[in-house]
């Protein structure tokens, strides 16, 4: 009996200790995706099939949505402008901004979001891909065209509103992602590893033995080949990219009796079933993560 216990324990100990130190800040490979992150596309008003069970739903207005998520470069430029305009403030180790608060319904587990100043981004988090020298923000080398992450719902909303835009509602986001035919993924019904950035998708930016999965540049999955890694063109029927995987994307809705804000699209850290267009994540609006970003919409005149 002793022998069997000792052999099994040694085997386990060996297996569990055979690991090496990890450099989480390793520079990413740099690729030009050829995507213009300033592009917008119009989504027409009308019916679409919404949710897992394809309920007929109508959006009564047309709107434009960003073709790709907001990048680190775009967000850094915004921070410098907004800081200069005193629209946001640096307070200690975070960038903050004012939010007028939500109606409080006293729902179960609901936390009151009062009027006040709330975090937009944490400056001391090593996974923020921006640097701040006390005056201005710059992007850490190599991360310019990657989606902006470590941004709270307040920070995402603030970016959109500063530019005269807004966050998409969940319905607007979903219609832009799947079109009108009820498909499960933006490009169709099946997912391959080179369709999107998800957990264990083996893209050139991930190393599952060390730092794990990381963001890919926005619009990376556009059919181009990067150093022998060939992607599939994974745009939605409206030509919107990164609507599955890479980063979760904040949406605008504030629901009755809860303080959570909802995210759509799945992320680099999720298995592919969480990339289905109806999949949702949620968190408190102050939540920030290396796997959460956003994009904006604007109304059509």
């Amino acid at each position: 009996m002793k022998k069997s216990i000792i052999t099994m324990s040694l085997f386990l100990l060996f297996a569990l200790t055979a690991c090496q130190p990890v450099d989480f800040q390793a520079a990413p490979p740099v690729f030009d995706t050829g995507m213009d992150s300033e592009q917008w596309v119009e989504i027409p008003a009308g019916e679409f099939l919404q949710g897992q069970f394809k309920k007929e739903t109508t959006i009564d207005h047309a709107y434009e949505i960003m073709v790709t998520p907001v990048t680190n470069a775009q967000y850094a430029a915004y921070l410098n402008e907004a800081l200069a305009a005193d629209y946001i403030q640096v307070n200690g180790n975070q960038v903050e901004g004012y939010y007028p608060g939500d109606a409080f319904a006293g729902g179960r587990h609901e936390e009151e979001i009062k009027a006040g100043s709330y975090i937009h981004i944490p400056l001391d988090d090593p996974f923020l891909r921006l640097s701040y020298d006390g005056n201005s923000f710059t992007v850490k080398p190599g991360w310019e065209n990657h989606p902006m992450t470590m941004v709270s719902w307040f920070g995402a909303k603030s970016y959109c509103e500063f530019n005269g835009w807004r966050l998409p509602t969940e319905l607007e986001w979903e219609k832009a992602a799947r079109g009108t035919d009820g498909r499960a993924y933006p490009w169709g019904e099946e997912i391959a590893r080179n369709n999107a950035n998800f957990y264990f998708s083996r893209d050139p930016f991930e190393n599952m033995a060390t730092f794990g999965s990381r963001t890919t540049p926005v619009g990376f999955y556009n059919g181009k080949t990067y150093n022998h890694y060939t992607t599939l063109d994974s745009a939605s029927p409206y030509g919107v990219y990164d609507m599955a995987g890479n980063v979760w994307q904040w949406t605008a809705n504030v629901y009755d009796a809860q303080h959570y804000r909802y995210m759509r699209g799945g992320s680099k850290d999720m298995y592919e079933n969480n990339l289905r267009v109806w999949s949702m994540n949620n968190a408190t609006p102050t939540f920030t993560s290396p796997g959460t970003g956003f994009r904006c919409v604007r109304d059509v005149e």
Binding site: L16, V22, D125, P126, F127, M208, T210, G212, P290
Partner: peptide, 15 residues
């Protein structure tokens, strides 16, 4: 944290 979880995840998954 989420960003630094992979080594822990790898060990847990391996075990």
């Amino acid at each position: 944290t989420e960003g630094e979880q992979q080594p822990l995840v790898n060990r847990a998954v391996l075990a």
